[in-house]
């Protein structure tokens, strides 16, 4: 029990590692008096979203690595021509990120009517993106290019399809925010919660935007 022998008893403050006063409560709160702090409490939406996106990123990393390996593993790779409509999708989704950012600013400035409006515009742009993607798939299918036609088309359908599925999730989130935004809230906790939810959905939506740009470049530059 030699480890037990102490020379200088001091008041424990977390065995040498913790802060000197009972630390910030784990909620990440900056306040020491009350608990729970509403803002810190809803922080879990933001944290949870970043954590979830790490796993989404990992899945697309695995698919991209498969893409790169497969493109180099044989000579049956026949690159698709880029469907022109994809430029329109790109513009739509970039635009939707911008309008969402405007909506978020409006919410911060407590302007609830413009917030609702800009959310609605974002949802419409998102639906436009989806429509453009569906148009691109149908165009390719019309030219006789299907999932199994060649490895590049397989990856094209897979990657754009997986992106679209994730995007639909984002659209549901946006629609949910939009429906909720028409309800007037004054309670502090609920306002904090609305901000956190809007932040979380925005993080997701911007991620989908960036992911699309990445996939677009991967599919049509790396081939």
């Amino acid at each position: 029990m030699a480890t037990m022998v102490s020379t200088r008893p001091v008041r424990s403050t977390g065995a040498g590692t913790g802060p000197k006063v009972p630390g910030p409560n784990g909620n990440g709160s900056k306040r020491h008096d009350g608990f729970p702090d509403p803002d810190a409490n809803w922080n879990r939406y933001r944290i949870g979203m970043w954590v979830g996106l790490a796993s989404v990123a990992m899945m697309f990393t695995s698919l991209s690595s498969a893409y790169i390996v497969r493109s180099a593993s044989s000579n049956d790779w026949a690159a698709l021509p880029m469907p022109g409509i994809l430029l329109a999708s790109t513009a739509l989704i970039l635009g939707s990120s911008a309008t969402l950012e405007v909506a978020r600013r409006k919410l911060k400035a407590a302007l609830s009517v413009p917030y609702t409006k800009w959310l609605f515009v974002t949802v419409m742009l998102g639906l436009g993106f989806l429509a453009a993607q569906i148009f691109a798939w149908r165009q390719l299918a019309g030219r006789g290019i299907y999932v199994a036609s060649n490895p590049h088309s397989s990856f094209f359908y897979l990657l754009t399809g997986a992106h679209a599925v994730h995007l639909v999730g984002g659209l549901l989130g946006l629609t949910f925010l939009w429906l909720r935004s028409r309800r007037h809230v004054i309670d502090k906790t609920l306002i904090a919660r609305r901000k956190a939810a809007t932040d979380a959905v925005s993080i997701y939506w911007h991620f989908m935007d960036a992911l699309w740009i990445y996939l677009f470049l991967l599919l049509f530059l790396w081939r």
Binding site: P19, G23, G26, R44, S55
Partner: peptide, 21 residues
């Protein structure tokens, strides 16, 4: 499940529960 565990641990610790405690 993993998402939930990570967020819980990062965000829900009580007062005084520092990481190294």
């Amino acid at each position: 499940g993993a998402l939930n565990f990570i967020t819980t641990l990062l965000n829900m610790r009580t007062k005084g529960m520092t990481l190294m405690r």
